[in-house]
Amino acid sequence: MNGDDSWGDAFDEDPDGDPDADLLPCPDCGAAIDADSEACPDCGYWITEADRAEAWRAGSATGRVLRVGWWIIGLAVAGALVAWWR
């Protein structure tokens, strides 16, 4: 894997122009692949259920809301700790 957290960026349309296609970026090379593919046609990386779950979490509105919520909670806790130490 390349460690890039680019899941869900601009993969809402397949290369043939079908906006209804479910595409995900390959976790290894970043190529747009069908969400039901077992392997990336470009690099051959085998797509696991964990990869699909991560793509959904990172690319879905629910995943984004959860990440923002955790950041807000973290900042609130950090602010409370700073206020407590003063």
Rank of each mutant, 00 (worst) to 15 (best):
D22G: 14
E13K: 09
G59C: 07
P25F: 08
A58I: 01
D18S: 12
S60M: 07
F11E: 04
P15F: 06
M1H: 10
T48I: 04
V82Y: 12
A55F: 02
E49S: 11
E13A: 03
L24W: 03
D9H: 12
L24N: 04
G8L: 03
V68H: 05
W84P: 00
I73E: 01
D18I: 07
G8E: 00
C43R: 10
A39R: 14
I33V: 14
R86C: 05
D20L: 13
I72F: 08
G63Q: 03
D4Y: 15
E38A: 11
V68L: 11
S37V: 09
I47F: 02
C26R: 06
R64I: 08
Y45C: 05
S37Y: 08
E54D: 09
A10Y: 05
E54R: 14
I33Q: 05
D36N: 13
D4Q: 15
G74A: 11
D28R: 13
P41F: 15
G79H: 05
D36R: 13
M1F: 01
A32K: 10
W84F: 14
W70A: 14
A35R: 12
I47A: 03
L66H: 05
W85D: 04
T48D: 00
V82K: 04
G63R: 04
W56F: 08
G69H: 06
A21N: 07
I47Y: 01
A39W: 07
D14R: 10
D28H: 12
V68Q: 02
D9S: 11
P19S: 06
A80C: 14
G63Y: 06
G69F: 05
W71H: 11
A83P: 08
I33A: 03
D14V: 06
V65T: 10
A31T: 12
N2K: 14
P25L: 07
G17C: 05
A83K: 10
D34M: 10
W46L: 09
V65W: 08
Y45L: 02
T48W: 11
G74M: 07
V65K: 15
W46R: 15
C29R: 09
S60I: 03
S37T: 10
V65D: 00
A50G: 01
A61Q: 08
R67E: 06
P19I: 07
S6V: 06
D18A: 12
V77M: 08
R52C: 00
F11H: 02
G3I: 04
G30W: 01
D14S: 11
G3H: 10
G3L: 06
A39E: 10
A31I: 02
W70T: 13
L81G: 15
A55S: 13
A32N: 07
A55T: 03
D51R: 11
T48Q: 02
S60P: 00
G30E: 02
A39H: 12
D36P: 07
Y45A: 05
A55W: 10
D16I: 11
G63L: 04
N2T: 09
P25R: 13
R57C: 00
T48K: 09
D4L: 15
D51H: 12
S60Y: 07
T48M: 02
A35E: 09
S6E: 06
E13W: 00
D20P: 00
